[in-house]
Design a binder for these strands. Structure first.
Lengths: 148, 148
DNA sequence: CCTGTATATTTGTCTATACAATTGTTGAGG
DNA sequence: CCTCAACAATTGTATAGACAAATATACAGG
Protein backbone atom coordinates (compact mmCIF):
# COMPACT_ATOMS: atom_id res chain seq x y z
CA UNK A 1 0.00 0.00 0.00
CA UNK A 2 1.50 3.26 -1.12
CA UNK A 3 -0.13 6.23 0.58
CA UNK A 4 1.08 8.91 -1.81
CA UNK A 5 -0.03 6.89 -4.80
CA UNK A 6 -3.47 6.18 -3.40
CA UNK A 7 -4.29 9.74 -2.48
CA UNK A 8 -2.47 10.90 -5.61
CA UNK A 9 -0.17 13.52 -4.20
CA UNK A 10 3.47 14.24 -4.93
CA UNK A 11 3.93 16.42 -1.87
CA UNK A 12 5.75 15.13 1.20
CA UNK A 13 3.15 14.47 3.92
CA UNK A 14 4.18 15.22 7.54
CA UNK A 15 4.77 11.97 9.42
CA UNK A 16 1.87 12.38 11.85
CA UNK A 17 -0.62 13.24 9.13
CA UNK A 18 0.73 10.43 7.03
CA UNK A 19 0.23 7.98 9.87
CA UNK A 20 -3.41 8.98 10.31
CA UNK A 21 -4.13 8.86 6.58
CA UNK A 22 -2.35 5.54 6.34
CA UNK A 23 -4.44 4.21 9.19
CA UNK A 24 -7.68 5.32 7.56
CA UNK A 25 -6.70 3.68 4.28
CA UNK A 26 -5.97 0.41 6.06
CA UNK A 27 -9.28 0.78 7.87
CA UNK A 28 -11.19 1.05 4.61
CA UNK A 29 -9.48 -2.07 3.33
CA UNK A 30 -10.15 -4.06 6.49
CA UNK A 31 -13.81 -3.05 6.68
CA UNK A 32 -14.26 -3.92 3.03
CA UNK A 33 -12.82 -7.40 3.47
CA UNK A 34 -14.85 -8.11 6.59
CA UNK A 35 -18.00 -6.72 5.06
CA UNK A 36 -17.58 -8.92 2.00
CA UNK A 37 -17.02 -11.96 4.21
CA UNK A 38 -20.19 -11.37 6.24
CA UNK A 39 -22.35 -10.11 3.37
CA UNK A 40 -23.54 -13.51 2.23
CA UNK A 41 -24.76 -14.24 5.75
CA UNK A 42 -26.87 -11.09 5.75
CA UNK A 43 -25.48 -9.71 8.98
CA UNK A 44 -23.49 -6.57 9.68
CA UNK A 45 -20.24 -6.53 11.64
CA UNK A 46 -22.13 -5.12 14.59
CA UNK A 47 -24.74 -7.86 14.48
CA UNK A 48 -21.97 -10.43 14.25
CA UNK A 49 -20.30 -8.95 17.30
CA UNK A 50 -23.50 -9.01 19.31
CA UNK A 51 -23.97 -12.69 18.44
CA UNK A 52 -20.42 -13.39 19.57
CA UNK A 53 -20.95 -11.55 22.83
CA UNK A 54 -24.11 -13.55 23.45
CA UNK A 55 -22.35 -16.82 22.70
CA UNK A 56 -19.62 -15.78 25.14
CA UNK A 57 -22.26 -15.60 27.84
CA UNK A 58 -22.60 -19.40 27.74
CA UNK A 59 -26.35 -19.45 28.02
CA UNK A 60 -26.54 -16.63 30.52
CA UNK A 61 -28.63 -13.88 28.91
CA UNK A 62 -27.35 -10.33 28.54
CA UNK A 63 -29.43 -7.20 28.82
CA UNK A 64 -29.24 -4.33 26.37
CA UNK A 65 -27.01 -2.14 28.55
CA UNK A 66 -24.50 -4.94 28.86
CA UNK A 67 -24.49 -5.48 25.11
CA UNK A 68 -24.11 -1.80 24.54
CA UNK A 69 -21.22 -1.61 26.95
CA UNK A 70 -19.36 -4.32 25.10
CA UNK A 71 -20.11 -3.07 21.65
CA UNK A 72 -17.98 -0.20 20.59
CA UNK A 73 -20.80 2.00 19.39
CA UNK A 74 -23.83 3.66 20.80
CA UNK A 75 -26.90 2.48 22.67
CA UNK A 76 -29.64 3.98 20.59
CA UNK A 77 -28.99 1.38 17.96
CA UNK A 78 -28.87 -1.64 20.21
CA UNK A 79 -32.63 -2.00 20.41
CA UNK A 80 -32.99 -1.88 16.65
CA UNK A 81 -29.95 -4.04 16.09
CA UNK A 82 -31.39 -6.74 18.33
CA UNK A 83 -34.73 -6.35 16.53
CA UNK A 84 -33.00 -7.40 13.35
CA UNK A 85 -31.38 -10.43 14.95
CA UNK A 86 -34.74 -11.32 16.42
CA UNK A 87 -36.38 -11.21 12.99
CA UNK A 88 -33.73 -13.60 11.73
CA UNK A 89 -34.39 -15.91 14.64
CA UNK A 90 -30.84 -15.68 15.98
CA UNK A 91 -31.76 -14.33 19.40
CA UNK A 92 -34.44 -14.62 22.01
CA UNK A 93 -35.70 -11.71 24.08
CA UNK A 94 -37.71 -11.48 27.25
CA UNK A 95 -38.36 -9.05 30.03
CA UNK A 96 -36.16 -9.66 33.06
CA UNK A 97 -38.45 -10.98 35.80
CA UNK A 98 -36.49 -9.46 38.68
CA UNK A 99 -36.31 -6.02 37.10
CA UNK A 100 -38.92 -5.30 34.51
CA UNK A 101 -36.96 -2.37 33.11
CA UNK A 102 -34.39 -4.76 31.79
CA UNK A 103 -34.57 -6.95 28.72
CA UNK A 104 -32.77 -10.26 28.61
CA UNK A 105 -31.28 -11.25 25.29
CA UNK A 106 -29.92 -14.69 24.59
CA UNK A 107 -28.70 -16.46 21.50
CA UNK A 108 -30.82 -19.22 19.98
CA UNK A 109 -29.54 -22.57 18.74
CA UNK A 110 -30.14 -21.29 15.24
CA UNK A 111 -28.04 -18.23 16.06
CA UNK A 112 -25.22 -20.39 17.35
CA UNK A 113 -25.33 -22.60 14.25
CA UNK A 114 -25.22 -19.58 11.97
CA UNK A 115 -22.42 -18.04 14.01
CA UNK A 116 -20.34 -21.16 13.62
CA UNK A 117 -20.69 -20.87 9.88
CA UNK A 118 -19.68 -17.22 10.04
CA UNK A 119 -16.66 -17.96 12.20
CA UNK A 120 -15.01 -19.67 9.25
CA UNK A 121 -15.67 -16.76 6.89
CA UNK A 122 -14.36 -14.38 9.51
CA UNK A 123 -11.20 -16.35 10.01
CA UNK A 124 -10.58 -16.37 6.27
CA UNK A 125 -11.08 -12.61 6.20
CA UNK A 126 -8.60 -12.12 9.03
CA UNK A 127 -6.07 -14.34 7.32
CA UNK A 128 -6.47 -12.44 4.10
CA UNK A 129 -6.16 -9.03 5.75
CA UNK A 130 -3.03 -10.05 7.62
CA UNK A 131 -1.46 -12.33 5.03
CA UNK A 132 1.65 -10.18 4.60
CA UNK A 133 2.41 -9.82 8.29
CA UNK A 134 4.63 -12.17 10.27
CA UNK A 135 3.97 -13.26 13.83
CA UNK A 136 6.59 -10.78 15.01
CA UNK A 137 5.02 -7.95 13.05
CA UNK A 138 1.59 -8.72 14.47
CA UNK A 139 3.06 -8.51 17.94
CA UNK A 140 4.67 -5.21 17.07
CA UNK A 141 1.36 -3.86 15.82
CA UNK A 142 -0.42 -4.89 18.99
CA UNK A 143 2.35 -3.27 21.01
CA UNK A 144 2.04 -0.02 19.07
CA UNK A 145 -1.77 0.00 19.17
CA UNK A 146 -1.61 -0.09 22.96
CA UNK A 147 -0.15 3.41 22.81
CA UNK A 148 -3.30 4.88 21.35
CA UNK B 1 -5.43 0.71 25.67
CA UNK B 2 -6.08 -2.76 26.98
CA UNK B 3 -8.05 -4.85 24.51
CA UNK B 4 -9.19 -7.54 26.92
CA UNK B 5 -10.37 -4.95 29.41
CA UNK B 6 -12.28 -2.93 26.84
CA UNK B 7 -14.15 -5.85 25.35
CA UNK B 8 -14.42 -7.39 28.81
CA UNK B 9 -13.17 -10.88 28.17
CA UNK B 10 -10.84 -13.03 30.19
CA UNK B 11 -10.21 -15.50 27.39
CA UNK B 12 -7.01 -15.44 25.42
CA UNK B 13 -7.73 -13.98 21.97
CA UNK B 14 -5.79 -15.46 19.01
CA UNK B 15 -3.15 -13.00 17.81
CA UNK B 16 -4.72 -12.32 14.42
CA UNK B 17 -8.17 -11.72 15.85
CA UNK B 18 -6.67 -9.60 18.55
CA UNK B 19 -4.89 -7.48 15.98
CA UNK B 20 -8.08 -6.82 14.06
CA UNK B 21 -10.08 -6.03 17.19
CA UNK B 22 -7.28 -3.82 18.43
CA UNK B 23 -7.26 -2.01 15.12
CA UNK B 24 -10.99 -1.40 15.24
CA UNK B 25 -10.77 -0.06 18.78
CA UNK B 26 -8.04 2.35 17.73
CA UNK B 27 -10.16 3.32 14.76
CA UNK B 28 -13.11 4.24 16.95
CA UNK B 29 -10.86 6.38 19.10
CA UNK B 30 -9.27 8.15 16.14
CA UNK B 31 -12.59 8.85 14.43
CA UNK B 32 -14.02 10.17 17.67
CA UNK B 33 -11.16 12.59 18.18
CA UNK B 34 -11.25 13.83 14.61
CA UNK B 35 -15.01 14.12 14.62
CA UNK B 36 -14.91 16.19 17.81
CA UNK B 37 -12.26 18.44 16.32
CA UNK B 38 -14.26 19.12 13.16
CA UNK B 39 -17.70 19.21 14.81
CA UNK B 40 -17.59 22.90 15.73
CA UNK B 41 -16.88 23.76 12.10
CA UNK B 42 -19.94 21.90 10.97
CA UNK B 43 -18.18 19.74 8.40
CA UNK B 44 -17.70 16.01 8.21
CA UNK B 45 -14.34 14.36 7.70
CA UNK B 46 -15.29 13.65 4.10
CA UNK B 47 -16.23 17.27 3.47
CA UNK B 48 -12.96 18.36 5.04
CA UNK B 49 -11.06 16.01 2.74
CA UNK B 50 -12.82 17.31 -0.33
CA UNK B 51 -11.92 20.87 0.64
CA UNK B 52 -8.31 19.81 1.09
CA UNK B 53 -8.24 18.11 -2.29
CA UNK B 54 -9.67 21.24 -3.89
CA UNK B 55 -7.09 23.44 -2.17
CA UNK B 56 -4.39 21.09 -3.43
CA UNK B 57 -5.52 21.87 -6.96
CA UNK B 58 -4.16 25.41 -6.60
CA UNK B 59 -7.02 27.12 -8.32
CA UNK B 60 -7.45 24.47 -10.98
CA UNK B 61 -10.97 23.09 -10.63
CA UNK B 62 -11.68 19.38 -10.15
CA UNK B 63 -14.63 17.50 -11.53
CA UNK B 64 -16.69 15.06 -9.52
CA UNK B 65 -15.01 11.94 -10.87
CA UNK B 66 -11.63 13.30 -9.87
CA UNK B 67 -12.85 14.10 -6.39
CA UNK B 68 -14.39 10.70 -6.08
CA UNK B 69 -11.22 9.02 -7.21
CA UNK B 70 -9.22 10.78 -4.51
CA UNK B 71 -11.73 10.29 -1.77
CA UNK B 72 -11.69 6.89 -0.25
CA UNK B 73 -15.41 6.25 -0.49
CA UNK B 74 -18.03 6.00 -3.16
CA UNK B 75 -19.29 8.26 -5.93
CA UNK B 76 -22.99 8.37 -5.27
CA UNK B 77 -22.41 10.65 -2.33
CA UNK B 78 -20.06 13.05 -4.01
CA UNK B 79 -22.83 15.05 -5.65
CA UNK B 80 -24.67 15.45 -2.37
CA UNK B 81 -21.48 16.06 -0.43
CA UNK B 82 -20.56 18.90 -2.76
CA UNK B 83 -24.11 20.22 -2.47
CA UNK B 84 -23.54 20.68 1.22
CA UNK B 85 -20.25 22.49 0.71
CA UNK B 86 -21.99 24.66 -1.87
CA UNK B 87 -24.70 25.59 0.63
CA UNK B 88 -22.01 26.66 3.07
CA UNK B 89 -20.36 28.77 0.38
CA UNK B 90 -17.10 26.82 0.53
CA UNK B 91 -17.06 25.72 -3.10
CA UNK B 92 -18.05 26.97 -6.50
CA UNK B 93 -19.53 24.74 -9.18
CA UNK B 94 -20.01 25.17 -12.90
CA UNK B 95 -20.50 23.06 -15.96
CA UNK B 96 -17.27 22.39 -17.80
CA UNK B 97 -17.49 24.35 -21.07
CA UNK B 98 -15.43 21.86 -23.09
CA UNK B 99 -17.42 18.84 -21.95
CA UNK B 100 -20.86 19.60 -20.66
CA UNK B 101 -21.12 16.23 -18.93
CA UNK B 102 -18.50 17.33 -16.47
CA UNK B 103 -18.92 19.60 -13.49
CA UNK B 104 -16.04 21.76 -12.34
CA UNK B 105 -15.73 22.25 -8.62
CA UNK B 106 -13.37 24.77 -7.09
CA UNK B 107 -12.83 26.07 -3.59
CA UNK B 108 -13.91 29.62 -2.75
CA UNK B 109 -11.89 32.16 -0.75
CA UNK B 110 -14.32 31.58 2.07
CA UNK B 111 -13.66 27.85 1.81
CA UNK B 112 -9.93 28.40 1.97
CA UNK B 113 -10.27 30.69 4.98
CA UNK B 114 -12.41 28.15 6.80
CA UNK B 115 -10.05 25.35 5.87
CA UNK B 116 -7.13 27.25 7.37
CA UNK B 117 -9.02 27.47 10.64
CA UNK B 118 -9.78 23.76 10.50
CA UNK B 119 -6.14 22.89 9.78
CA UNK B 120 -5.24 23.98 13.28
CA UNK B 121 -7.97 21.88 14.87
CA UNK B 122 -6.94 18.93 12.76
CA UNK B 123 -3.31 19.27 13.73
CA UNK B 124 -4.30 19.36 17.40
CA UNK B 125 -6.38 16.22 16.89
CA UNK B 126 -3.47 14.43 15.23
CA UNK B 127 -1.12 15.45 18.01
CA UNK B 128 -3.55 14.23 20.62
CA UNK B 129 -4.15 10.90 18.89
CA UNK B 130 -0.44 10.24 18.52
CA UNK B 131 0.79 11.84 21.73
CA UNK B 132 2.19 8.60 23.12
CA UNK B 133 4.09 7.59 20.01
CA UNK B 134 7.70 8.52 19.30
CA UNK B 135 9.05 9.45 15.88
CA UNK B 136 10.53 5.97 15.60
CA UNK B 137 7.25 4.32 16.49
CA UNK B 138 5.38 6.38 13.91
CA UNK B 139 7.85 5.21 11.30
CA UNK B 140 7.35 1.62 12.41
CA UNK B 141 3.60 2.01 12.11
CA UNK B 142 3.86 3.41 8.62
CA UNK B 143 6.17 0.56 7.72
CA UNK B 144 3.73 -2.03 9.05
CA UNK B 145 0.69 -0.37 7.46
CA UNK B 146 2.35 -0.72 4.07
CA UNK B 147 1.92 -4.48 4.46
CA UNK B 148 -1.85 -4.26 4.41
C1' DC C 1 -27.17 13.12 -39.51
C1' DC C 2 -28.84 8.99 -36.79
C1' DT C 3 -27.86 5.29 -33.57
C1' DG C 4 -25.72 2.93 -30.11
C1' DT C 5 -22.32 2.88 -26.55
C1' DA C 6 -19.52 4.97 -23.16
C1' DT C 7 -19.02 8.62 -19.86
C1' DA C 8 -20.41 11.96 -16.03
C1' DT C 9 -23.51 13.15 -12.92
C1' DT C 10 -27.86 12.99 -10.53
C1' DT C 11 -31.69 10.94 -8.23
C1' DG C 12 -34.34 7.44 -5.61
C1' DT C 13 -34.51 4.28 -2.12
C1' DC C 14 -33.08 1.62 1.65
C1' DT C 15 -30.19 0.97 5.58
C1' DA C 16 -27.19 2.67 9.31
C1' DT C 17 -25.97 5.95 12.83
C1' DA C 18 -26.24 9.92 16.10
C1' DC C 19 -28.73 12.45 19.33
C1' DA C 20 -32.69 13.88 21.86
C1' DA C 21 -37.02 13.12 23.79
C1' DT C 22 -40.18 9.79 25.73
C1' DT C 23 -42.01 5.79 28.15
C1' DG C 24 -42.02 2.62 31.71
C1' DT C 25 -39.99 0.88 36.05
C1' DT C 26 -37.55 0.97 40.38
C1' DG C 27 -36.29 2.33 44.85
C1' DA C 28 -35.21 5.84 48.34
C1' DG C 29 -36.96 9.40 51.46
C1' DG C 30 -40.68 12.03 53.33
C1' DC D 1 -48.30 5.17 50.40
C1' DC D 2 -46.65 9.05 47.41
C1' DT D 3 -43.27 11.57 44.95
C1' DC D 4 -39.18 12.14 42.67
C1' DA D 5 -34.76 11.03 40.85
C1' DA D 6 -32.30 7.45 38.54
C1' DC D 7 -32.28 3.82 35.38
C1' DA D 8 -33.40 0.79 31.08
C1' DA D 9 -35.13 0.65 26.90
C1' DT D 10 -37.64 2.55 23.03
C1' DT D 11 -38.98 5.83 19.61
C1' DG D 12 -38.59 9.97 16.58
C1' DT D 13 -36.02 12.48 13.61
C1' DA D 14 -32.27 14.13 11.01
C1' DT D 15 -28.11 12.98 8.55
C1' DA D 16 -24.83 9.89 6.16
C1' DG D 17 -23.76 6.14 3.16
C1' DA D 18 -24.50 2.09 -0.29
C1' DC D 19 -26.34 0.65 -4.50
C1' DA D 20 -29.05 0.79 -8.56
C1' DA D 21 -31.55 3.19 -11.94
C1' DA D 22 -32.16 7.29 -14.59
C1' DT D 23 -30.68 11.42 -17.08
C1' DA D 24 -27.73 14.07 -19.97
C1' DT D 25 -23.90 14.49 -23.01
C1' DA D 26 -20.20 12.98 -26.19
C1' DC D 27 -18.44 10.57 -29.83
C1' DA D 28 -17.60 6.78 -33.14
C1' DG D 29 -19.42 4.22 -37.17
C1' DG D 30 -22.76 3.44 -40.66
Amino acid sequence: MNVEKIIKTDKEIPLKSRTIIHFILVDVKIKETIFTALKSYGVSLQQFNVLRILRGQNGKPANLSTLNERMVTKMSNTTRLVDKLLLKGYVHRRICPSNRRKIEISITDQGIAQLERMDGAMKDAEDKILENLSQKELEQLNFLFDKF
